[in-house]
C-alpha cells in the first residue's frame, strides 16, 4: 500500500462519514460544520487527482464562501439566541431505502462498466493549459459565467435587502402590487 492509497482511504472515510453526520445530525449547526470537513476532504481528493487548481478553488469558494453563507443563513433564519436550532426529519425510512437503492445501482453501474481509460500524466495539468482552454474552447461559458455571477449578486442583494412597505409593517395584508 503506497502513500496514495493510504491518503485515499483516509480521506474517503473522512468524506463519507462527515457527509453522513451532516445528513443525520439533528442540529443544523453541526450539519454545517460537518459539511465543512466534507468539502475540505474533497479538496484533498482533487489534489490527489492532479486537479490542484480545482482543489484551491474548492477551498476558496466552498469552504471560504458558500459555507460561511450557509452559516449566516442558519443564524439569520433562527429566532433569537435561545431557540434550539433543531430540525425535523420526515419520511426517513422510504427515503433511506430509495437513496440506498440509488447508491447500489450507481455503484453497480460504475463497477461493471468498462471505462475507456486515458490517464493524464502529472505534467499535463498546468495552470497555463487550463488558462488557455478557458480563453479558447471555453471562452463563451467563461464570459457567461461572469454575467451569471453579476446577475446572482444583483438578484441576491435585491431580494435580501428589500425593505417591507409601511402597510406590511403594521401587520395588514399587503396587496399584490406591493409585493412585486
Amino acid at each position: 500500500m503506497d502513500l496514495f492509497a493510504i491518503v485515499f482511504y483516509l480521506f474517503a472515510i473522512l468524506i463519507v462519514s462527515t457527509a453522513a453526520i451532516m445528513v443525520f445530525s439533528k442540529n443544523i449547526v453541526y450539519s454545517a460544520f460537518a459539511l465543512m470537513f466534507t468539502l475540505a476532504g474533497l479538496a484533498v481528493f482533487y489534489a490527489l487527482l492532479f486537479a490542484g487548481f480545482v482543489a484551491v478553488t474548492q477551498l476558496l469558494v466552498y469552504v471560504g464562501g458558500i459555507l460561511v453563507l450557509i452559516l449566516f443563513g442558519v443564524m439569520l433564519t433562527t429566532r433569537g439566541y435561545f431557540e434550539r436550532v433543531r430540525i425535523r426529519t420526515v419520511y426517513m425510512l422510504p427515503s433511506a431505502l430509495f437513496a440506498g437503492i440509488i447508491a447500489v445501482l450507481l455503484i453497480a453501474v460504475f463497477v461493471t462498466t468498462d471505462w475507456t481509460l486515458a490517464p493524464l500524466s502529472e505534467g499535463d495539468v498546468t495552470l497555463a493549459a487550463l488558462g488557455e482552454l478557458l480563453l479558447t474552447d471555453f471562452m463563451l461559458p467563461f464570459q457567461v459565467a461572469g454575467v451569471l455571477l453579476l446577475l446572482a449578486i444583483i438578484g441576491a442583494v435585491l431580494m435580501a435587502a428589500r425593505k417591507r412597505g409601511p402597510l406590511e409593517k403594521k401587520g395588514t395584508v399587503p396587496d399584490a402590487d406591493k409585493i412585486i
Binding site: 468524506i15 445528513v23 481528493f45 433564519t77 420526515v90 426517513m92 447508491a103 455503484i107 463497477v111
Partner: peptide, 22 residues
Amino acid sequence: VVGALLFSLGLLAVMTRRNLIM
C-alpha cells in the same frame, strides 16, 4: 464509488430534511 455515496447522502438530505437551509 465515493461520488455515488456522496450523491445518495445528498439525495437523502434533500428528501428527509424540512429546513430550507438543510
